[in-house]
């Protein structure tokens, strides 16, 4: 039973990270119907920037929490900057192009960013410092859930709540929802669609950066390639939940995380990716619109 709870909690942790990244995919897809393949790379760049900042600060004698805060903030700033630039360079010129074009551009961008980090830094795995301290009050249950996992869960939850509030109540949130419903209509009623799209990329990137820093410090290493698999998994989560739907991304992330965790725990960790994609195919066949997605008919 304890093993089950342990697996459940680690699945939840994993799933909440997937959810954080999946939100970026789902928001972008909801608005411009594009699988932003390079989103995983934004996550990786967030983790890498955090790694570099941590390294520099440690060497220059900073301590504990201050490192965590500075590195986290800079990671978010840089991820947002990359996300914003990515949209402007690789996707904006392709508005209105045939559907395959921006998708291929996105794949190209993903390959480009991976290799950019590889060339600018290193192909090796780098040790990432554990930024999250072990809390004393966690001592009695530490064998079931670690401090790092707790921080991940709490951070994710807080972020999600903030995102929901942002989308529900702020002006830009409303503009985002309007654009998602009907872009040309939104433009007609005076929404600055370009700005909405940029904002969407920035928000998605910030979430990815948070995920990147949390995971890197939890797993303890970074590498130019970590974004790829995380990105693919997160996209899977977004599709599972119903792409375009924000609560769907969260549910999809959790379902995927739990599936992987149990598959790894009870079957074999070698095949967890197989389970993840098997689940995706199964869901897509039975419910092509995903768990929470609404099946819409294309207007002819």
């Amino acid at each position: 039973m304890e093993y089950f709870i342990e697996l459940f909690l680690s699945g939840l942790t994993r799933g909440s990270i997937y959810a954080l990244i999946a939100l970026g995919y789902t928001m972008v897809y909801g608005i411009i119907q594009l699988i932003n393949f390079a989103h995983g790379e934004i996550y990786m760049i967030g983790a890498f920037v955090a790694y570099i900042v941590c390294g520099v600060l440690t060497i220059y004698g900073f301590h504990g929490v201050s490192i965590l805060i500075i590195a986290g903030l800079l990671a978010i700033v840089y991820s947002c900057a990359y996300g914003y630039t990515l949209e402007k360079v690789a996707y904006r010129p392709l508005r209105g192009a045939p559907r395959l074009s921006p998708l291929i551009s996105a794949i190209g961008m993903s390959i480009f960013l991976q290799n950019y980090v590889l060339l600018a830094q290193t192909p090796d795995f780098l040790p990432f410092p554990a930024l999250i301290p072990d809390f004393a009050f966690m001592e009695p249950i530490a064998h079931i859930i670690g401090s790092a996992e707790l921080v991940i869960l709490v951070t994710t939850m807080v972020t999600m709540v903030m995102l929901t509030l942002l989308i529900k109540y702020t002006k830009i949130g409303k503009a985002m929802r309007a654009t998602q419903q009907d872009m040309s209509m939104a433009r007609l009623v005076g929404v600055n669609v370009d700005r909405v799209i940029s904002t969407t990329f920035i928000i998605g990137s910030a979430l990815a950066a948070i995920g990147g820093v949390l995971v890197a410090s939890y797993i303890g290493q970074v590498n130019f390639y970590i974004g790829f698999l995380a990105g693919v998994k997160a996209f899977t989560a977004a599709v599972l939940g119903g792409i375009g739907s924000i609560p769907g991304a969260v549910i999809g992330g959790l379902v995927l995380g739990l599936t992987e965790s149990f598959a790894a725990g009870y079957v074999s960790s070698d095949y967890e990716d197989v389970f993840a994609f098997g689940l995706l195919v199964l869901i897509l066949i039975m419910r092509p619109a995903g768990i929470l997605g609404k099946a819409t008919k294309q207007k002819v």
Binding site: L94, A97, S101, S105, G108, M109, S110, I111, F112, N115
Partner: peptide, 11 residues
């Protein structure tokens, strides 16, 4: 890296 960039530029 050139492949990646070329795919974007080409598109």
């Amino acid at each position: 890296i050139i492949f990646g960039a070329a795919m974007v530029v080409m598109m």
